[in-house]
């Protein structure tokens, strides 16, 4: 939304891009502890939890400032379901990026693909991502995407305000809240506490089907498959295992006063209380 010097306040709609990942629902996974395996068969999928906060925030910004929201997902073909959900939540159009060569890449590869998607979309003022996904949870994609697009990164946002070209963000850091300001365009990663995502209404769900949903792939994006995905990843996943517990599991039952006494004695014996 750069303003021509001298021209009258011209109101270009705010162009927002929001990125989400389509993930396996980790709360519904079946864990086979005996065989140290996770059973992915028939696992449910969803929009990564905090990405819903990013989508919600995009919609709130649009409700306040006006604008157009493009939602982007790099994922498998069945991410279409999640993409429609994002449209139902209030995004205006979607770009679903599916290509076998994009699979099993590291987070930098995903960020690079997203940067090419953003370039193809062309105009934008604000990019929103979450701070980390519920599946691999690296938190790499947001800052890496900002780097590839040479944008300022305002991370851990607990509040976002846009006024004209000015973007103000409260960042929830380890030691407090920092308020920063910059000019758009910029990339913001949102914290979970920023809002409470809405549930789309039936009407919204039905009308989502009529919104523009384009599928792009490596070819449409002009990406050489040898520079993305597994082929170019600098970090590889070697294996997945189930965390094991080696706790004593001594359980006291019975009368509260007896159980409490036994526990107190055990804690003293362990030297755990002094």
């Amino acid at each position: 939304m750069t303003q021509q010097p001298g021209t009258k306040e011209k109101k270009n709609p705010l162009e927002i891009i929001v990125c989400f990942k389509h993930v396996i629902d980790e709360t519904e996974l079946r864990i086979d502890r005996a065989n140290n395996k996770i059973n992915f068969e028939g696992a449910k999928t969803k929009i990564s939890d905090d990405d819903k906060n990013a989508i919600e925030e995009a919609v709130r910004i649009k409700e306040k400032n006006g604008g157009i929201i493009t939602v982007v997902c790099v994922g498998p073909a069945d991410a279409k379901k999640s993409t429609k959900e994002a449209l139902a939540m209030g995004c205006d159009r979607a770009r679903l990026i599916v290509d076998p060569s994009f699979q099993d890449g590291d987070a930098l590869s995903t960020a690079y693909i997203l940067s090419q998607v953003v370039k193809k979309i062309g105009k934008f003022d604000l990019i929103l991502t979450s701070t980390g996904t519920t599946d691999s949870y690296t938190g790499i994609v947001g800052p890496a995407l900002a780097e590839y697009l040479d944008l300022p990164q305002l991370t851990y946002a607990s509040k976002i305000t846009i006024s004209g070209n000015k973007l103000t963000v409260d960042r929830a850091l380890d030691d407090g809240i920092e308020t920063v300001e910059c000019e758009i365009p910029a990339l913001v990663t949102v914290s979970r506490e920023i809002n409470q995502p809405r549930f789309p209404t039936l009407i919204q769900i039905m009308s989502a089907g009529k919104k523009e949903l384009l599928e792009w792939n490596a070819q449409t994006l002009g990406i050489n498959p040898s520079v993305v995905g597994k082929a170019d990843s600098k970090v590889e996943v070697k294996s997945l295992s189930v965390p094991k517990s080696a706790r004593k599991k001594v359980i006291f039952e019975g009368k509260p006063e007896d159980a409490a006494k036994q526990l107190a004695e055990a804690l003293l014996k362990e030297g755990a209380v002094k």
Binding site: E26, L29, I38, T134, D135, S136, T138, K238
Partner: peptide, 22 residues
């Protein structure tokens, strides 16, 4: 470098490795 990471909401431990500097 090889390391372990908690993934899938803490349900799993992934062993990941970098190819080269990291």
């Amino acid at each position: 470098i090889t390391a372990e990471r908690l993934v899938l909401g803490g349900n799993a431990i992934a062993t990941v490795a970098s190819r080269g500097p990291a």
